[in-house]
Amino acid sequence: MSQGPAPRTLSDEALSTLLDHQQFGTLATNKRSGHPHLTTMLYQWSPDTRVLRFSTTADRVKVKHLRRDPRAALHVSGGDVWSFAVAEGRAEVSEVTTVPGDAVGRELLAMVPQAARPSDEDAFLKELVAERRVVIRLAVERLYGTALDIDG
């Protein structure tokens, strides 16, 4: 039986590009038992600061996990099933946005892609407050991943 090609380690630049071109990944946080808690998340990657940002609500279990243990990782699939990137680091959870247009609300608004910006920003900012939204900021300390070059 032929072994086929070995996985190719991706460079830091290639990994950053992969993160930049995708929108969804699987965020792993740590349960009190030590087992991972996995959840699919929409994210924003800032390659210059090496920070991943996620919008979520204050009552989510991942927020509770990260407040107790800030270690987290994001797994992102590449354009095919043969490539992936993992970003590991320490996360911080913002305060809840409490006043429409406060700093957290503005950060959440800035995370929305320009093409998808709400037509009524004031209503959007009020909705963020009503939903008790927070920002998870994952400061990436380590990036790794591979690609498998398979024809066909």
Score class of each variant (00 low, 15 high):
Leu125Thr: 10
Leu27Arg: 11
Asp102Phe: 13
Leu148Ser: 01
Thr97Ile: 11
Val129Asn: 01
Val63Pro: 12
Ser46Phe: 14
Arg142Ile: 13
Val104Tyr: 06
Phe54Arg: 01
Asp80Tyr: 13
Arg60Ser: 08
Val61Tyr: 15
Lys31Val: 02
Gly79Gln: 13
Gly145Val: 04
Ala110Phe: 05
Pro5Gln: 07
Gly152Phe: 00
Ala72Thr: 14
Arg137Asn: 03
Leu42Lys: 04
Leu52Gln: 10
Arg8Thr: 03
Ala6Glu: 13
Val112Ile: 15
Glu88Trp: 07
Lys31Gln: 15
Gly145Gln: 03
Glu141Arg: 12
Pro7Val: 04
Arg8Gly: 00
Leu38Thr: 10
Ala123Ser: 14
Leu15Asn: 11
Arg50Asp: 00
Ser94Thr: 11
Asp149Val: 13
Met1His: 12
Asp151Thr: 04
Ser77His: 07
Arg68Lys: 02
Met1Thr: 13
Gln22Ile: 03
Asp151Val: 11
Phe84Ile: 04
Arg53Trp: 07
Val51Tyr: 12
Asp20Met: 11
Leu74Phe: 12
Gly145Tyr: 10
Leu74Asp: 03
Ala139Glu: 14
Leu109Glu: 10
Arg137Ala: 15
Trp82Val: 02
Ala87Asn: 09
Phe84Val: 06
Thr9Gln: 14
Ser33Trp: 02
Gly34Thr: 05
Leu138His: 06
Arg53Ile: 02
Ser46Leu: 11
Arg71Ser: 15
Ala123Asp: 12
Glu13Ala: 15
Val96Met: 02
Phe124Thr: 12
Thr26Leu: 04
Gln22Asp: 02
Lys62Asn: 03
Ala139Lys: 15
Thr146Asp: 14
Gly25Arg: 10
Gln114His: 10
Ala91Asp: 05
Ser94Trp: 02
Arg137Val: 10
His21Trp: 05
Ala103Val: 09
Glu141Gly: 09
Arg8Glu: 05
Ala28Val: 03
Asp120Pro: 00
Leu148His: 05
Thr9His: 10
Leu138Trp: 03
Asp122Met: 01
Leu143Asn: 11
Ala115Arg: 09
Leu27Asp: 05
Asp59Arg: 15
Glu95Trp: 02
Ala103Ser: 14
Phe124Met: 04
Glu92Cys: 04
Arg53Glu: 01
Gly4Gln: 04
Glu92Ala: 03
Trp82Pro: 00
Leu128Ser: 02
Tyr144Leu: 12
Arg133Asn: 00
Val129Pro: 02
Ala115Gly: 01
Thr29Arg: 10
Gly78Asp: 06
Gly79Ile: 06
Ala139Pro: 01
Asp59Val: 12
Ser46Thr: 02
Gly101Ala: 08
Gln3Arg: 13
His21Leu: 10
Ser83Thr: 14
Ala123Trp: 04
Thr29Cys: 08
Pro7Ser: 13
Glu13Tyr: 09
Pro36Cys: 07
Met111Ile: 08
Arg142Asp: 15
Arg106Thr: 09
Glu107Ile: 00
Gly152Tyr: 08
Thr97Asn: 03
Gly89Asn: 07
Ser119His: 13
Asp102Thr: 12
Val93Thr: 10
Asp59Cys: 06
Arg32Leu: 09
Gly79Asp: 12
Arg71Cys: 13
Pro36His: 01
Gln3His: 15
Leu27Asn: 03
Phe24Gly: 01
Tyr43Pro: 01
Val76Asn: 04
His65Lys: 12
Val140Ala: 07
Arg106Asp: 14
Pro7Cys: 09
Ala115Thr: 09
Arg67Cys: 06
His65Leu: 09
Thr57Asn: 06
